[in-house]
């Protein structure tokens, strides 16, 4: 009993410490004080200011656009890579997997810098000093950040799959394309989905690759593309987090919380379904 209380108090103490900064921002998003620590009475003023701030809205829009486009591209590329690699000869698969491992273990900043020097070199020597940095270079950076993880998420699902499935579909009259769509894809879809979600979170959270590879474009127009990360970084370099960004934390927190609740519900459901199936099997026996 004592052991249990001690264990719980340790877990909750660390959880509390981890959440303090976020919770403080959330609490002080409901007052209009300039600095955290001073309470000017309850108000929703900052929420109004957040939605009026063009700068922040542009950054949020950019972040979401980049996250979705890069996640879709990374998921398609990574999944095709994993499926193709799975059916390729052993040696070519080994090569593919080793290269795939490079961005996974590499430091983000090294990866970002390597892309930048390549684009600078190509711009200087092939396009006569042109500045290549734009939305497209940024997109490449985000895809390379995420695609290897999609590959790693899809691969185990392929290994769990019945290896004869594709041939069986062909024998039953499917074209190769139909066989992939109707037989292979349903088997690996959980891996594809988790790869996609991971790609989204990697892109949303990214600062280094964005800061290195970005150029002008998207909602920022002629200026450098700002995402939430780069905008917040520019602000906190000069001083405390601007008051109108506190409500942003609250909103992000709520969205994440909803997603987490959704996942745990789904997880409990699948666990229940599994145990039901098992029970039924046992009854049959």
């Amino acid at each position: 009993m004592v052991k249990k209380i001690l264990g719980y108090s340790y877990i909750y103490l660390i959880l509390l410490l981890m959440y303090i900064p976020i919770l403080v921002l959330i609490v002080f998003s409901f007052t209009n004080a300039t600095y955290i620590g001073t309470w000017n009475g309850f108000s929703f003023d900052l929420y109004g200011k957040l939605f009026q701030s063009e700068e922040i809205m542009i950054a949020v829009g950019n972040t979401v656009i980049i996250a979705i486009i890069s996640a879709v591209c990374a998921t398609v590329l990574g999944t095709l890579g994993a499926v193709g690699g799975f059916y390729a000869k052993r040696r070519s698969r080994a090569i593919l997997e080793n290269i795939n491992q490079i961005p996974v273990v590499n430091a983000e900043i090294v990866m970002a810098l390597s892309l930048v020097v390549m684009f600078v070199f190509i711009g200087n020597n092939i396009f006569g000093g042109a500045n290549l940095f734009s939305f497209w270079t940024l997109l490449v950076g985000h895809i390379i950040l995420a695609a290897p993880f999609v590959y790693l998420n899809v691969k185990p699902k392929l290994q769990q799959m019945d290896p004869a499935l594709y041939e069986a579909a062909l024998d039953l009259g499917c074209s190769p394309r139909q066989a992939l769509n109707k037989a292979v894809l349903p088997e690996i879809i959980p891996g594809v989905f988790s790869g996609f979600m991971l790609s989204i979170t990697l892109s949303l959270d990214d600062f280094i690759v964005t800061a290195f590879t970005r150029g002008s474009g998207l909602l920022s127009g002629a200026a450098n593309i700002e995402t939430i990360s780069t905008l917040v970084q520019a602000k906190i370099k000069k001083g405390p987090i601007p008051p109108e960004m506190r409500p942003l934390t609250t909103i992000i927190f709520l969205i994440v919380l909803l997603v987490v609740i959704f996942i745990s519900l789904r997880r409990n459901k699948t666990i229940n379904v599994k145990s039901m199936k098992r029970r039924k099997l046992r009854e049959k026996e």
């Binding site: 249990k4 934390t249 992000i252």
Partner: peptide, 30 residues
């Protein structure tokens, strides 16, 4: 005994999904 339905694990992982620059700024301010 401590972690009946995975919720605690998710609570520990959840901060990872909140923008880390924002979290870093929050830590600094606090």
């Amino acid at each position: 005994k401590f972690n009946k339905n995975y919720v605690l694990v998710l609570l520990f992982v959840m901060p990872m999904w909140i923008n880390f620059v924002l979290r870093t700024g929050a830590t600094r301010d606090v």
